[in-house]
Each structure stands twice: as C-alpha cells, then as structure tokens.
Design a protein around this nucleic acid. Structure first.
Lengths: 215, 215
DNA sequence: AGCTGTGAATGTTTTCACAGCT
DNA sequence: AGCTGTGAAAACATTCACAGCT
C-alpha cells in the first residue's frame, strides 16, 4: 500500500517535523515558516517543503504552516492518530531502559506488552507493564493487535524472536540485536550501537594515519 | 582529511563487513566471496565489492577475500587498531545500559569515562568505570584523549553537553537526546528512539486509512 | 512582499555489465 | 572457471529557481 514514490528518507524526517510543530503548537505559536523549521531541524527549507508537499499542500503561501494543523496531519500520515501498539522482547538492561523511556514518553506508540525468557523477571513489571514469558508472545500480540516489535534480545535469539513477532501479526520491527533479521513482509529497522560507534571512529583523527602497508 | 569522494553510506557499512569477516576469521574460515557476504548482510555483492574497493584492492580475483586480512584492513580504515576512547555523559537508565553493553562488548572502542550531574551517582561506577561530575568533563576528556562522546542526557541539557565535549577535544558525538546539536567541526550522529518508532508506524497497516479530510 | 509548491538541474548512491587476474 | 575491480548507466535524493497564492 505504502510503496509509492515517496522517498524513505522523507518518511524518516516526518517525526522530526512532528516534534517541532507539536512543541510550537503546545507553546501557542500558531504559524511557522519552512525557513524557521529549517533553523530548528538543521535541514534545508526546500527539503522540508518538498517532504511535506508529498502528502498534500499543508501550508499557506505568503504565510507558512499552521502548527497545530500540521501536527495533526503528520500524525495522521504516520498512522499515529490511532495509537499504535508495540511489544518489547528482551527485558535486559537495554530493553528495560527502552521500555521505561518509551512508556513514559509516547502516548502515540504504546508499549503494551513485554516478553522475556528469564523466569526471575516474569511476573515483575516495567512501569505497570507486566513481563510475560515468550511462550505467550504470539497469542498476546495477536489479541492486543500489536503492530510494532522491539527486539532487544541477544543476537543468537534475534531471528527466532523476529519470526515469533511476525506470527503474532507484527508488521514492523525495531531491531537492537547485532544480527541480520530475515522475515518476509516485515519492515525491519536496525539500531546497532557497535556499528554506530565504529563508523563514528572513522570521522575522528583516530583514523587519520593511513595504510602504510598491510601487516 | 576524510572528506573524499567516499560515500558516507559506505562508511556506515564497513562495521557490518567487519563483524562478518571477524566472526569467520574467528571460526577459521579463511576466505569469503562477496556473494556470500551479501547473503550474510542482506546487501548486494556489487555494493560490497565497490565499498571495499574505495579503500584498495583487498580481494583476490577468482578467489574471494581473506577474512583475517580484511578484518585487519577494515579496522585500520576505521582507526580501530589504535583503540578509540569514548566518554558517556548521562548515566540514567539508558546511559547505564549503553555503558554496560559497550564496556563488555568492545575492546576497540573503550568507554573510559562516565559523567553525570546527580550527586547520588557520582562516586559509584559502571562495570569498573567511575561516574564523575560533569564539572570534570573537559579536563578528563583532554587528559585521556577521548575522541568520541555519547550523549544520553535530557534534551534540555544536550546542547551544553555537546559544547563541553567539544571543548574536551571530542571529534564525534553519538547523540541519544531528542534535540538538534549545533557544534562546529564535530561529527554528530543521532539515534532517536521516538523518531525510529514513529517512522516505523508508517510501514504498518496503522497508517493505511488515508486523509479522508483535515479535522 | 512573503512564503509555499514544484518542475528542472544537480549531486549522490546503487546497479549493471564486463574486462582483468588467478 | 570463477570472482574481483570498475567504468558506464540507472535510480534516487537534494538543491535551485521561480511561478503562484494570500
């Protein structure tokens, strides 16, 4: 359905715009120009206008964008107006932190279930959301209509976890495990701390001195 | 120095290749073809060959790539052979989890300092790395030669933190705070959980039903 | 006068296709 | 025979420049 001619890169910028206009609407600033949004996001005004124009003409020429209206429109484009349900798998240190953050911040994306294999953890909860055994994953996700899965398990368990999530009806996965997930018809986004840190190293003077020779 | 014609996207894939060939070298698999690497990474063989070719001819025609050699070469390109030092700012739940993970996993990128403002936390440690007050950040980073900063503070403190890191000699920042950092001559990479989750929502059926109308 | 919306131009990244070693 | 290395082509994304509303 989605697969149109809209750049993926543009989709990934929509939440940035949403944050900016939401804050402004909250602060009773009724209008913002693309130039000012550019200032606040570090992007170019043309790019912002183009991104928004993919979805329709939301602004007023000579004036700018209505912050409250634009916030509602972007939320709708992303499907956030319905309240998207997410499940976390893996309640280790990272999973725990992600869950805490996510439960407290987002109303639009709700973590409604958490799963782990550790018997010690099962029965406990994270900010009111109980930790359930992975054996209940498929059934629970189906019953609750979970659409997004967050994978924060060790690499060795990641593929199995992804397959369970798919079986549970999940359509998109945010994967923190350092492993390539192969699941058809599920959109996978990877966040890999090791990869981020290692590629950052390239941009420091640590990577200056060149080859010299093989060794 | 770095600013050549090498795609940023290629740099970000190098750590993926590094992981694959390191694992293979470890498992005493001496040679791998670009086709097999493609299989393991989900990328195309041509892209892998092209990415590697930016830095020289590492493979042998008709054969493939020597895993151990390629691992050393990539590590060298990224500057990892010298052991890059990183500092974490913000030892909240997320920062704590990141530090634990990073300290245990990486030998090549070492978290050698952690800073926080909370007096309760100062004096405690994360896996042997002491938590210091932010007032000591600049001096400590300079003294230790820290090149990478990890920002895991609230959005309101992010900009100040980034400026301190720059003053401390940091050249690249991994920013987990939902805020745009403006620091000249410092390479900034953002990881924003909210943005990732919200853009994922677009790829689920939650975002199916279209506009209908403004409201 | 001002700021959006957008075709056209430019720049960047990926894919193709094949020559070149081993 | 097989797999790398690489110009050339294609696809994709960004920036330019200006027409079009308000």
């Amino acid at each position: 359905m989605r697969r149109t001619n809209i750049p993926d890169a543009a989709i990934r910028r929509l939440p940035v715009y949403l944050r900016v206009v939401s804050e402004l609407a909250e602060a009773d600033v009724p209008i913002i120009s693309s130039a000012e949004m550019a200032e606040r996001t570090g992007l170019s005004p043309e790019q912002i206008r183009k991104d928004l124009a993919y979805f329709g003409a939301f602004g007023t020429r000579g004036v700018g964008y209505d912050t409250a209206l634009l916030a509602r429109r972007i939320a709708r484009i992303l499907g956030l107006h319905r309240g998207v349900k997410a499940a976390l798998v893996g309640a280790g240190h990272l999973g725990h932190a992600l869950a805490r953050y996510s439960i407290s911040q987002h109303k639009d994306i709700q973590i409604t279930a958490i799963f782990d294999t550790d018997p010690e953890k099962i029965g406990t909860d994270v900010m009111g959301v109980p930790i359930q055994p992975v054996s209940e994953l498929v059934e629970t996700c189906r019953a609750k209509g979970v659409k997004i899965g967050i994978v924060a398990v060790p690499a060795s368990a990641a593929q199995t976890t992804a397959e369970l999530l798919k079986e549970g009806g999940v359509e998109a996965i945010l994967n923190f495990a350092p492993a390539k997930l192969k699941v058809e018809d599920v959109f996978v986004q990877n966040i890999d701390l090791t990869i981020e840190l290692q590629s950052l190293a390239y941009y420091t003077s640590a990577s200056e001195g060149d080859p010299g020779d093989g060794q």
